[in-house]
Amino acid sequence: MGKCLSCCEKPVPPGSSHPTASHPLHTFPLARPYTSLSQDAKETTKLQQQPLVSQSPPVTDSLLGSGGTPTEKKMFTPYSKLPPIKRQTNGESKRPTSITGSVGSTVTGREVSDSKIAALFENYRDEDEEDAMLEDGILRFCSDLGVQPDEFIVLVIAWKCQAATMCRFTREEFFTGCHAMRVDSVKGLQSRFQELKAEVCSSLHFKDLYRWTYKFGLDAESGQRTLPLEMAVILWRLVFSQSPPVILEHWLEFLEKHLNLRGIPKDTWDMFFNFTEQVGDDLSSYDDNEAWPSLLDDFVEYENDRQNQNVKTD
């Protein structure tokens, strides 16, 4: 495998010309005429025996042409220079995008067109803002996709775009999302719905989606830092809509009964995800020595009372 391709040619009988004109191997610039090792050794011995004086080589039959005149022996087969390869483009900027597969791996997807993504964005861009798709445009976008704005898949699309706030897609966010999802059309995005839902089924991706959702629900223009309780309840139901924890509805019921509770801090939002994974469906694995937010401690006490687990019998 490591030898030159010319070594695979058949040896040329003495006195006959080498078939260089039509053999395909001689299109390689490094192809070399074949000579046997014994022939090379003989020629080397002759050269060593000759005196070191300048003399003309004898004219032999092998150096004579058809007319009996000396001809020059060709050691390399001439080849034609290949023209450079030119890439054919149709004027569009296309580039392959990639998505994250399993941890530590990257899966290359199909090419998407920046010009098509730009045209798609223009269809829904707000008339008064050059680089933003606002509520009306997003509603039309959802309508063309055949989904409702409050569906889980719309939340996933916004997560893929890394949208900073609700009811708004900037041009940069929209391009980021389209490349992340490997789409440049409405039909292309529709065809990816099931794949996108399957992607966030993994605990790693879902946790990222869950944590991002808190920031997504904040009113960035007003500088809001705490998620209002009403919005938190809506987003908890939405983000867990595909696989809700058993305790979710009990948790939301507990929150709605706390009339003095105005908002949900980010640490409580984040820790509730860990809470659902660790305490079990019946709260049997709850450990009050762990550093849970006080609101979660109150919830466990509320649930124990509700189930009469703390009621003593005579």
Rank of each mutant, 00 (worst) to 15 (best):
D131I: 12
K81G: 13
R87K: 14
T100P: 02
S66G: 01
S80Y: 11
I117P: 00
I138A: 04
I99P: 00
R140M: 09
C142E: 11
K73G: 12
I117V: 11
F121H: 00
D114Q: 10
D126H: 13
V107F: 12
D131Q: 15
S143L: 07
R125D: 03
G109P: 01
D128I: 05
M133F: 14
L64I: 00
L64Y: 04
Y79D: 08
N123L: 10
E130I: 08
P96Y: 05
T108E: 13
A119L: 05
K116G: 00
T71Q: 15
L63H: 08
L82E: 07
T60R: 06
F141A: 03
G109W: 02
S98F: 01
E129K: 15
R95W: 07
V107E: 10
E127P: 08
G67W: 08
L63E: 06
S93F: 06
G104D: 03
I99F: 07
T108S: 08
G67V: 05
K86T: 15
G65K: 03
S105C: 13
M133Y: 12
S113W: 02
S93A: 02
I99M: 06
G65S: 00
I85K: 12
T71N: 06
L120T: 02
V107A: 07
C142K: 12
E92F: 07
D128S: 12
